[in-house]
Simulated assay, not measured.
Amino acid sequence: MAVYTTVSGADLQALLQDFDLGQLVDFQGIEGGIENTNYFVSLNDNAGCRQEYVLTLFEELNQSEMPYFVELTTWLAEQDIPVPYPLQDRNGIALKSMHNRPALLQPRFPGRHLETLTPDHCTQIGAALAKFHVAGKDFYLQRQAHRGVFWWRRESEHLTSKLSTEDADLLRQEVDLFDQLREQDWHLPQGAIHGDLFYDNALFEGDQLSAILDIYNACTGYLLYDLAIVANDWCVNPDGSVDSDREDALLKGYASERPFEDNEYLAWPQLVRTAAMRFWLSRLIPAMDPDSTQKIKDPDELRRILLSRIAKPAKLP
């Protein structure tokens, strides 16, 4: 979450006129993210009780792309998946516009981001992700990943001339290996995936998971690839090595809600590598662009994870 577009009290008052939520008390920008502008919004409802919301302005997605996310989050919330969902105004309209950007007003979930991850936290997020996947399996819309296979083919070619020979070869190798995986007749389960469930996209109230946030990289993809993204963030050490206790807890938590299929055991060693490659690439691009205004995250963190996954192939329990 971050603030790229300034929102005024007058902007909020104009938006709130369409809703029956109460009177504006306070609002403040949320710092710390990458893609969108976010504000906490406090209202007093008609009974005088304070209610908390989040306003999101989308900096990269346009109006035509938004219905997928509006429908998906509403679908998931109706199946008790703890995700932010868009509130509808008195006319049943959820998708709004502010400063020529798509905008959504959503409930604010309680909880905080974790600083230290335990096996129990990993069990919980694994089970929650599996429930997300089961709930999204029959979702009626599809979306191609914004930064999926076609993106990383293109961007890796653009970037390799700027990399060391070793890193360029590593990037090409991983792109090619995923292409080979896609050619296999494995029929890996697909459906709606989160696509970016790093630990700072989850909230915990005490030690209990309370919300899964930032659904705006969601798309149609391999369910196991989504789990690989989580494993590479929730279950690794600073040197890139895997914490086997946390990863075992994550995978068993997931399997308790959606047991793995036979071919997923074959695909898992490559998918954790592909997930590491994808986020290494997405971090390399702004890091190597002197004109980038995007918040820079360390690309080497994901390179270390990728090398660790190559040196010690992953296994499903």
Rank of each mutant, 00 (worst) to 15 (best):
S156G: 15
D169M: 09
D138K: 02
L170Y: 01
Q144F: 02
H194L: 10
P189H: 07
H158Y: 13
W186S: 06
Q144H: 05
L163G: 01
D185N: 00
T118V: 11
G126R: 12
H133M: 08
L181P: 08
A192Q: 05
S164T: 14
H133I: 00
T165G: 02
W152R: 13
Y140I: 13
G195D: 09
E166L: 08
F139M: 03
W152S: 05
D196M: 09
F150S: 15
E166A: 15
F132D: 08
D167K: 12
R172I: 03
V175T: 08
I125N: 07
R147H: 15
A128M: 01
H187V: 09
H146T: 15
R153L: 14
L159N: 09
E183L: 07
E155I: 06
D120I: 06
H133V: 10
R153W: 13
W152Q: 10
F150D: 14
G195Y: 03
Q173S: 00
F198D: 01
Q180I: 02
F132L: 06
L170D: 01
Q124V: 10
A192D: 05
E174D: 02
R147E: 13
W152T: 09
I193T: 13
F178N: 05
F198E: 04
L181F: 02
F132S: 01
L197M: 14
R153Y: 04
L197P: 14
P189C: 10
L170G: 04
H146W: 14
D185Y: 00
S164I: 04
D196E: 12
D169S: 05
L117V: 10
D196H: 04
Q180T: 10
L181S: 12
D120W: 08
T118N: 07
A168K: 04
G195W: 12
H146I: 15
G191Q: 02
I193P: 09
